[in-house]
């Protein structure tokens, strides 16, 4: 099984440590993984802004970069969701179909495809999960509070096995953080307010570290935490799952 590592553009540029943790974690788990050079983006920022038609070249490049792999794995639910859901704008060749089918969010890949939960990590802190919407309601990484399905969470299944980690329960289990791509700029007031409210929920729930499977949400929350000097840290779930003492 050959895996292509998909590192979203903003992770590549702004959060290399998340990419590194993802790669190291996959290697630790014995996955034959490689990072195809020349990646750019999945086209999501364009699509969500209404410029899907201008993103065709970007999407096509993604397919070209990854078509030779059995699986494509990335540490960002919303980008993975975009590939799966919105690459319908491309002509559905065999390559496009296969890439869409075989692209997975990191946690989902570990849990569903590798069938593993015990990863040997240790992280003795109080952790709250931010369940990013595109991962939750798009990729269905877990059950969401709106639907009456039995409780389930991929991230929880993995984090529960981390030594020393104390998982905290939030008052609002899966409310949006208000990032939303360009929404964060065009609807700044609401975006900021939503982020502040999420952060307060974590503080009220005695959380030390907010984690999640989508660093774009975490970037937004981190920006607010740092600005307002709140006693919290954010870490991508790959960093926690890759950590040991």
């Amino acid at each position: 099984m050959k895996v292509g590592l998909f590192i979203p553009c903003y992770v590549n540029q702004l959060y290399p440590q998340v990419g590194i943790a993802t790669l190291e974690l996959l290697e630790k788990l014995g996955v034959d993984v490689e990072y195809p050079l020349g990646q750019t983006c999945c086209g999501q920022p364009l699509g969500n802004s209404g410029y899907e038609a201008d993103s065709k070249g970007t999407c096509q490049l993604f397919v070209e970069n990854f078509k030779k792999y059995d699986y494509i794995v990335g540490p960002s639910g919303s980008c993975v969701y975009h590939v799966k859901k919105h690459f319908d704008i491309l002509e559905q060749t065999e390559d496009v179909k296969r890439v869409r089918e075989n692209t997975f969010e990191l946690c989902q890949f570990i849990y569903q495809i590798l069938g593993k939960t015990k990863l040997g990590a240790s992280f003795p802190h109080k952790v709250g999960i931010h369940k990013s919407c595109h991962g939750l309601r798009g990729l269905r990484l877990g059950s969401c509070s709106e639907r009456m399905d039995p409780h389930f969470s991929t991230e929880e299944n993995l984090l529960k096995e981390v030594k020393g980690l104390e998982l905290k329960t939030l008052n609002r289990a899966d409310e949006c953080c208000g990032f939303g791509g360009t929404f964060s700029v065009f609807e700044e007031a609401i975006s900021v307010k939503m982020g502040k409210d999420r952060i307060q929920d974590h503080i009220d729930s005695d959380v030390e570290v907010i984690t999640g499977a989508d660093h774009s949400c975490l970037m937004h929350l981190e920006g607010l935490i740092n600005r307002n000097k709140k006693p919290l840290k954010v870490m991508h779930i790959a960093e926690i799952l890759n950590s040991s003492i």
Binding site: I7, V11, N12, Q13, L14, Y15, P16, G19, I20, L23, Y35, L37, Q39, S184, V185, E188, V192, G195, M219, H220, E222, G223, L224, N226, R227
Partner: peptide, 19 residues
């Protein structure tokens, strides 16, 4: 973005350079 939020701090290489 920067009205109410800090921008991410950028250090060292990007992922591709590191790789």
């Amino acid at each position: 973005w920067g009205h109410a939020r800090d921008l991410p701090e950028v250090k060292g290489d990007n992922f591709e350079e590191w790789y």
